[in-house]
């Protein structure tokens, strides 16, 4: 094989360099520089506070009785809105804490 043929071969199949041995220092340096990845909270944890707010609002705002929904008056609706707002404000810090621990 002449040198031109060998060069043609080398273009398509250049020799691969030997990989250097594993360097634990490099791995340690990478790991030290990592920032925690934001991991999405599981659906069960994402939705718990929404369920809690809805349940609390329903329990507080709906009067007892067979035709409870029908007897919701304007006052009840106002109370419903106020309680929902308060519950949401209270739930936000808990939600943020849950995310930071995830």
């Amino acid at each position: 094989m002449d040198s031109d043929d060998r060069l043609r071969q080398l273009i398509d199949h250049p020799p691969r360099d030997e990989d250097p041995p594993r360097d634990p220092v490099l791995t340690a340096q990478v790991m030290a520089r990592l920032r925690p990845r934001p991991v999405a909270a599981p659906a069960s944890r994402r939705g718990w506070w929404v369920v809690a707010v809805v349940a609390a609002v329903a329990a507080l705002a709906l009067p007892a009785g067979d035709d409870a929904v029908a007897r919701l008056a304007a006052d009840d609706l106002l109370l419903l809105a106020e309680v929902a707002l308060a519950a949401l404000v209270l739930a936000l810090p808990a939600f943020a804490l849950a995310r930071s621990r995830a």
């Binding site: 360097d23 490099l26 791995t27 790991m31």
Partner: peptide, 14 residues
Amino acid sequence: YATLVDRHQGRIVS
């Protein structure tokens, strides 16, 4: 991730 870095660092450095 350390496992992945260990496994591939040689080829990447090369």
